[in-house]
Deep mutational scan, measured.
Amino acid sequence: MATGGRRGAAAAPLLVAVAALLLGAAGHLYPGEVCPGMDIRNNLTRLHELENCSVIEGHLQILLMFKTRPEDFRDLSFPKLIMITDYLLLFRVYGLESLKDLFPNLTVIRGSRLFFNYALVIFEMVHLKELGLYNLMNITRGSVRIEKNNELCYLATIDWSRILDSVEDNYIVLNKDDNEECGDICPGTAKGKTNCPATVINGQFVERCWTHSHCQKVCPTICKSHGCTAEGLCCHSECLGNCSQPDDPTKCVACRNFYLDGRCVETCPPPYYHFQDWRCVNFSFCQDLHHKCKNSRRQGCHQYVIHNNKCIPECPSGYTMNSSNLLCTPCLGPCPKVCHLLEGEKTIDSVTSAQELRGCTVINGSLIINIRGGNNLAAELEANLGLIEEISGYLKIRRSYALVSLSFFRKLRLIRGETLEIGNYSFYALDNQNLRQLWDWSKHNLTITQGKLFFHYNPKLCLSEIHKMEEVSGTKGRQERNDIALKTNGDQASCENELLKFSYIRTSFDKI
Rank of each mutant, 00 (worst) to 15 (best):
G58Q: 00
T229V: 06
R263N: 00
Y118R: 02
K67G: 02
D101N: 06
H290E: 03
G37T: 05
N202L: 06
L106D: 00
N43Y: 05
T107Q: 13
N195S: 10
R256A: 10
D72E: 15
Q245P: 02
L60F: 02
N138Y: 14
I201D: 06
G241P: 01
A119W: 01
C328E: 01
G183A: 08
N257A: 07
F66V: 12
F78Q: 02
C239N: 00
E151Y: 15
S166H: 06
V200W: 03
M137L: 08
V305I: 03
F285P: 01
C335S: 06
T157H: 14
G262H: 04
R256G: 03
I158V: 07
Y94Q: 15
C331E: 02
S77V: 07
K224T: 08
Y319R: 02
N105L: 02
S323N: 03
V265E: 00
C264K: 01
N257G: 05
Y304L: 05
S143E: 07
I146Y: 02
N179H: 11
Q245L: 09
P330T: 13
V34F: 15
Q287E: 11
S296F: 11
C234T: 02
K224V: 08
M38P: 01
G333F: 03
V253Q: 06
F116R: 07
V144R: 01
A198M: 11
T85N: 02
V34R: 08
C182K: 13
G262A: 04
N308T: 04
K224C: 05
Y319F: 12
F275E: 01
E97A: 09
H307L: 05
C239T: 01
V281K: 01
D159H: 13
C53R: 00
P336G: 05
M38K: 10
T329W: 06
I82N: 06
K310G: 12
W210M: 14
K294P: 04
I201C: 14
S284W: 13
I312Q: 04
G232Q: 05
W210F: 15
K191Y: 07
K217C: 07
I82Q: 06
P313W: 12
F205S: 14
C331G: 03
C196R: 14
D247T: 03
I62H: 01
D159I: 08
N282S: 15
S166I: 07
N138H: 08
F258P: 00
G183V: 07
D178I: 12
I306E: 02
D178K: 08
C311R: 00
K176L: 04
C286S: 01
R298E: 06
A119L: 01
M65T: 04
R256M: 05
A190L: 10
N195A: 12
C153S: 09
N150L: 09
C286D: 01
K80A: 08
P246C: 06
I82L: 08
R110D: 00
L260R: 00
P187G: 14
G58H: 00
F275M: 04
P36K: 12
I82E: 14
T320E: 07
P330L: 09
V173S: 08
P334F: 09
Y118S: 09
Q276D: 15
T189W: 08
P316I: 06
N257P: 00
R145M: 08
G241V: 04
D165V: 11
Y154M: 08
R110A: 09
C182Y: 04
E124N: 11
P36I: 06
Q204S: 05
S237D: 14
N202P: 08
T68K: 11
L120H: 01
E181S: 08
R145C: 10
I222L: 05
S161T: 14
D288A: 13
Q303P: 13
V305A: 11
H214D: 05
G58P: 00
R279F: 14
I222S: 10
T45C: 10
E147Q: 14
L120S: 00
C182L: 04
S112Y: 09
R297G: 10
L155A: 08
Y273S: 04
P220N: 06
H48Q: 15
M83R: 01
M137N: 10
V93L: 12
L233E: 10
L64Y: 13
Q216C: 11
E147R: 01
L96P: 01
I109Y: 00
C286A: 01
P249F: 00
F283E: 08
T229H: 03
G95K: 03
T140P: 07
K294M: 09
H127N: 05
C315A: 01
N195D: 06
G32N: 14
L120A: 09
V200A: 13
T194W: 10
R256C: 02
D248P: 01
E33L: 10
C252I: 00
K310Q: 09
N308Q: 13
D101E: 08
S143T: 04
M321V: 15
N195R: 09
I163K: 02
E130F: 12
Y273V: 09
P220R: 03
L120C: 05
S296K: 09
V121R: 01
S237M: 05
F103V: 03
E51H: 12
D277S: 12
Q216M: 15
K224L: 10
C215H: 00
N43W: 06
L50G: 02
N170I: 08
N150M: 05
L289M: 15
C328Q: 01
T250D: 02
T140S: 08
F285E: 01
A119Y: 00
S143C: 06
W210C: 09
A254V: 04
F115M: 04
P187A: 13
R110N: 03
F116W: 14
L96V: 10
E97M: 03
V173E: 13
C235Q: 00
Y87P: 04
W210E: 15
D248Q: 05
